[in-house]
Simulated assay, not measured.
Amino acid sequence: MTVDYADYVDAGEAVDQGALSGKVAGGEVAPPVVAGVDYERLLNAREEPQNWLTYYGAYNGQRYSPLDQINTENIKRMVPAWVFQAGTTGLIAGASTYSFEAAPIVVDGVMFLSGWDGWVWALDAKTGVEIWRYKHAVPFDVSLCCGNVNRGVAVAQGKIFFVTANARVLALDATTGKRVWDKTYGDVRAGESATVAPLVVKNMVIVGSSGGEFGVRGHLDAFDLETGEHQWRCYTVPKPGEPGSDTWPAEGEAWARGGANCWVTGTFDPETNLLYVGTGNPAPDFDGGVREGDNLFTDSIIAVDVDSGQIRWHYQCTPHDLWDYDSIAECILFEQDGRK
């Protein structure tokens, strides 16, 4: 059997390893392990230490695993169990970097992993054998400020969610890798892109935009995980008349190109119903002369109502940033002495 790889890419279909090599693959359908992943399981993800159901392992962002089979005594004996070779995966125009930055998701023995340039794979987590792969066709001339990377996927209700370099968010069938829905949430020709690992909260897939170095207005977006219908958008630079707009020049439209992108996954507290997100640098990065003021909500931690997309409070780490510091590190949630 011979298969034209371009047919798969153009159709936005899953591509299995056997098809790429001209042979029929034995296992191109994954077991339906993601079908049972719902909001309740994500809320209690720490109770499944054998799995890694969401980007940080749990909503609180702690990345902590209670598994103790590997410890300080035996860590020195660790050796690779398997190696997955992604193969040739293509390039984009212009100077860039290509590397894996994704945190794999593991659900009952199946690993889901994303790569640069629109790739997603389902692997047997025990053996590293590829089950299926998906390739999203990213235009060759997409401009990326900071590397052709992707930070991971999210899973829920039988679907895999990920974003692409040309500012799209997609849902795939977790068993076959076939596309379920595909939505655009940024203007790639204006310099917007997407690299964030989505976060599933309730019935929504929440993603953020990239591209602050190119003078775009940052935003968070939420989509219905079943249909892809857009639920809300939260701009991270206020327009005139909105709270915080007085921290931008009154004349001109510096706010419309202000940056403050959310390109790292947020954390979520179900008790407060707030999503905590770090925002990036203002634009232009190093020249503050055209953007006098503190430039909210750049370089900030913002707390966003997950149902409405409204910013409830903020803390700005670097007012009027002139050094490209960002404030994009993870917002880790914890309690100490009774205080959240």
Rank of each mutant, 00 (worst) to 15 (best):
D294A: 15
E28L: 11
N281E: 14
Y55V: 13
A102K: 00
D141G: 06
G252V: 09
E13G: 07
T127H: 05
C331V: 14
E292Q: 15
G22F: 10
T127E: 06
T176V: 03
R339V: 12
T164P: 01
V290K: 12
I70F: 09
A156Q: 04
H136Y: 14
V155M: 05
K126V: 08
H219L: 04
G293N: 06
D287L: 07
V79A: 13
V180D: 12
A58M: 12
V264A: 07
I302Y: 06
V169A: 11
G115A: 12
A11R: 05
G128A: 10
Q69S: 13
R233M: 06
A19S: 11
D287K: 05
E40L: 07
A93R: 11
R189T: 15
G288L: 09
P240V: 08
I92L: 13
N261C: 13
L144K: 07
C317S: 15
S300G: 07
H219A: 03
G177L: 01
A103Q: 07
L220N: 00
V200K: 00
D108Q: 13
T279R: 02
A197P: 00
S327N: 10
C317D: 13
S210P: 00
E335I: 12
V306F: 10
A171W: 00
I160N: 00
G12W: 02
V106Q: 04
V207G: 00
P270V: 11
P282A: 11
D307S: 15
Q85V: 08
V24P: 06
G309W: 09
P139C: 04
K23G: 11
D269A: 09
D337P: 06
I160S: 01
G258V: 02
E229K: 09
